[in-house]
Structures are given as C-alpha cells and as structure tokens.
Design a protein around this nucleic acid. Sequence first.
DNA 1: GGAAAAAGGTGCAACGGCTGCAACTTCGCA
DNA 2: TGCGAAGTTGCAGCCGTTGCACCTTTTTCC
Lengths: 206, 206
Amino acid sequence: MGLRERKKLRTRRAIASAALRLFDERGFEETTISDIAAAADVSPRTFFSYFPSKDDVVFAEMDERLADIRARLAERPSGESPLATFRRVADALVEAISAEDEDGAIQVALIRDRPSLQAQALKRFADAEEGFVEVLRGIAPDLDEVTAATVMGVAFGGLRAAITYCRAQRYDADRTREATARALAIVEQVLESVPALTRPATDDAS
Amino acid sequence: MGLRERKKLRTRRAIASAALRLFDERGFEETTISDIAAAADVSPRTFFSYFPSKDDVVFAEMDERLADIRARLAERPSGESPLATFRRVADALVEAISAEDEDGAIQVALIRDRPSLQAQALKRFADAEEGFVEVLRGIAPDLDEVTAATVMGVAFGGLRAAITYCRAQRYDADRTREATARALAIVEQVLESVPALTRPATDDAS
DNA sequence: GGAAAAAGGTGCAACGGCTGCAACTTCGCA
DNA sequence: TGCGAAGTTGCAGCCGTTGCACCTTTTTCC
C-alpha cells in the first residue's frame, strides 16, 4: 500500500471522527460541512471526495464492516448449508453494529434519534439481505424465488427488529448480544422448517 | 367539512398529481419545486406548507392510506386473535401499495429506482410494524418484549421482502397479490407456532 | 534523477431544497 | 359587517451539493 493510499485512509478516518465528535458536541443539524472540514484540516470541497453526503459520514464505519461481511460471504466453505451460512452472517452483522468504542456509541445515538438516518440504516440492512438472497439463489437454485425472498425477509426482519428494540431500549453491547441471540433462536427455528435451507447445499459452481 | 378544508385538500391533491406527472415526464431530480408549484398554480413557498420535503410528495397517497390503516387498527373487534388482526392489517397493507391507477404506477417506479426513496419506504414499513407491536403489547402483555418485537419483525419482514421482490420484477397488481398471498401463507405458518398469537386475546382494556 | 502523467486537493460560482419572517388575502363566525 | 384565524406569498438567506478549472503531490517510466 503506497503513501497515497495510506494518506487517503488517514484523511478519511480524520474526517469521520471529527464529524462524529462535532455531531456529539453540538448536534447533527448544527454542524456544517465547513465545520467538519475545518476540524479535519481539509477544504470543504474535499469532504465530498471522501463521502458523497453529510449523512454518509455517520455510516462510514458501518459501511466498511458491511463491505467486509459481503466479501467474506463469497468465501463460503463448499457444502455448507444455507442455514449455517446465515448463522455466520448474522453473528457478523450483530458484531458489526455493536458499539464498543466511543464513536460507535455516538453513531448509534445519532441513528436512533433521527428518522432520516434510521431510514438509511434500514436500507443498508435491506441491501445486506438482498446480497444474501443472491447467494441463496446460487446455493439452492430449485427454491422458488418468492419463497427465497420471503424466507430471507423473515430471517433478516426478525434480526433487525431485535436490534432496533435493543437500540430503542439503550441496551449495551452485552445485553444486545443476549437479546439478539434469543431472536436468532426464534429465527433459526423458522428456517429449520424450510428443507431447502438445511440441506448441505447442491454446490453447483455457478 | 368547510370550504377551507375542501380547498386545502384539493390543493394538496393538485400539487401531488402535478408533481407525479412532472417526475414522470422529466425525471425526479430534473423537476424543481418551482416547476411543481407553477404546474399546481401555487407559489413555491406554499409547496412546503403542504409537504415537508420534495421526497414526501412521492409518498402523499401512501401516507394517507397508512394513516387509515393505523386508525382502523384501533377498532379491533374485542377478542380477535393477534393473528387475525395481523391478517387484516397485512391485506390492507398490500392493497395500500398495489398501484392500480396511473399515479400509483409512477410512484412505484420512482421508489423502485431511487435508493433514497427506497430507504424512506422501508422506514414507513418499519413504522407500521412498530404500530403493530404496540397493539400486540396491549393484547398480549404476558409476551416477552424481545420476542414480540422479533415475531413482528419476522412477519413484516417476510411481507416486505415479497413486496420488494414483486416490485423489482415489475409484477402487476394481480401477480403481486398472488405472490404476497404465498408469502403471507409462509409467514402465518410461522405465527401459528407462537401460542400467544393464536389465543383470542386477553383483552384487558388498556 | 527527472519529466510526463495520473491522482488528489482546493477555491469559486452556482443551483436548488428548505426555513423564518413579515406582509397580505381569504374565510369563518358572531 | 367586521374581527380574528388561517392560508398564501415574496424575500432573503443558510446550507448541502456539484461542475469546473487550476494547482500540488505522487507515481511511473525512461
């Protein structure tokens, strides 16, 4: 990784953390792009070469983790059942959004309190779901498409609802893990009733 | 209903349909608030006393129907089981978003093709779900909260995924109804396995 | 090591969504 | 008929966002 890329990453992080800090101190709407740029020591114009919008900077970290998960979804051990794959992805998702550090906590509060950010968080979750549906279609091509979409909607819907609940209740990371584990137990019970999901996968190399 | 209110409603409809028509003709981003205002014969400033944002005009009709559904959710026949209530709400939801008229079709296409509008549609769906969770808490106070949220997430998640699929596939209203019926069958099978939902409701008058 | 090319940063100007404010007009009611 | 409330409008302004042209830094290739 060259000097250029390292510097870019550092700048990106600087902008994101400056933004989070300012959002926390004086509020999201009360912070302008100029403020963020000044705090991160770049020009306002430069902000937009790192993030496409002010909202997106809130999701900077989450997007990195989601990209990771998506990438790792491809490296599925051949023959693994869809259910097992889902379990892995679900665990990773829960970890991806558990706010351990200070920036994470600010981000969670921001999203919880702002409807427009909530909407964008939901969209990201839906996109993750869609990615999983694609994988599932590859694994179980005999499964009817509406059924596949519905079953994944059920799975991700349950998980999402549990996470949203934990956030609304201001659960910490530990209690969140505990609650989502219970939610996943319910969801998995559902998934186990779909035969196509528990089979070890046909594994055509499509 | 006085002259005043009738006139307001007429203006609201005029703005909404002018907007949809313009979005269809020249595109969403290419249409400005001024354009819409001119087409609806009001001042640009007035637009914002009817809709809080340009995006919201796309959801004008949907929001009316969702408000209806929410209102009717309160008039639940006493003793009806949560599952039966869900069925009613789900049917109403599917109807609420089935695009029968031309404006509806434009609206559906707009949302399908624009990520930011998709996000807002998801938010509306999530809000409907939340309303249902509140009702469920009233009906079945003995049901654990995480479980209640998860189960409703499962139900609405499945329904939402099916609807999204139909839209992506450009299904017409009939095929959408057929596909969502299948999705609902899957979802209801899940809900039937939760004892608290099939009981005719405790009906404390909370 | 140095020149050319590529990539990144910056300032400027502009557009458009959105808001507060202060008139002005219209409507409902007594 | 006249008064107060509600609705409409224009204005000025903030801010997010973008295209463009110019400059600086890094990389690449000889």
